[in-house]
Amino acid sequence: MKAPAFRYARPESLDEAIALLVEHGTDARVLAGGQSLMPMLNLRLLQPSVLVDINRLPLSEIRLQDQTLDIGALARHAEVLYSGEVAHMAPLLKLALPHVAHLAVRNRGTHGGSCALADPSAEIPACALALEASFVLRGPRGERRVPAELFFRGLYETALGADELLVRVDYPRAQPGWRYGFQEVARRHGDFAIAGLAAAARVEGGVLREARLAFFGVADRPVLVRGASVEELRERTDKMEVSGTRVYPPPFRRRLVRVLLERVTSSIEK
């Protein structure tokens, strides 16, 4: 099980990286943490002709801004997990990251990689959706910003063009009165979830007044449900379409979705 032949480039600057992407188009693949790309290569599920290794680009920073907490695309899962600023300003990520893979994978896998991959069962994209993060994309025509709701387009599909790099994910700073909840159902620790829920909610006097729930593992992309009360969230969640597999058929997943909703909202209201 060896990776197929490819060529490898390691740009030292963003411009170089983008020039490479422009030159090689869909034949090229960006290599970030490699924790998803390398297995696909080793299994020969992908045969790109060029790998553009972005690990030398200055995209690792986690920076607190006036309005936002900006997480560089190359920030490793472990760095985000142990960052004090993240714990403060995007506590949902801190709740979610222990569920992402395992120690060694977190040491290498990147925040941007997880978003760019857009695995429907992944935790971070759901958090980004619940937190209304915006994705900063850079391509030959400069930078553009895409809100989370428009970034995830389908199964392993995002708004990223073949010549674009995800450079940053900007999270609005946590606001007073907002609480966060995270739960997932997985058979083993660190597995991709069978179903999960990342939630942000405004709570007044122990009562949920406004919430954004991002379910993952239930459709081809994370699914956002908004509501102004638990009752409304229940209703809207029940209308959500849920997909399944032979082992985890749709009715089963639907039950998990209800359970997750109850567990997360009650943990938030507690």
Partner: peptide, 29 residues
């Protein structure tokens, strides 16, 4: 008892062909 299954599709295709699908017990559980 809890995890391991070599699951074949109706068409005879092994669906649990990697350790991401064929679940073995790990330390945490």
């Amino acid at each position: 008892a809890l995890y391991e299954e070599l699951r074949y599709g109706e068409d005879g295709h092994l669906e649990t062909g990697t350790l991401a699908e064929y679940l073995v017990p790990m330390a945490a559980e």
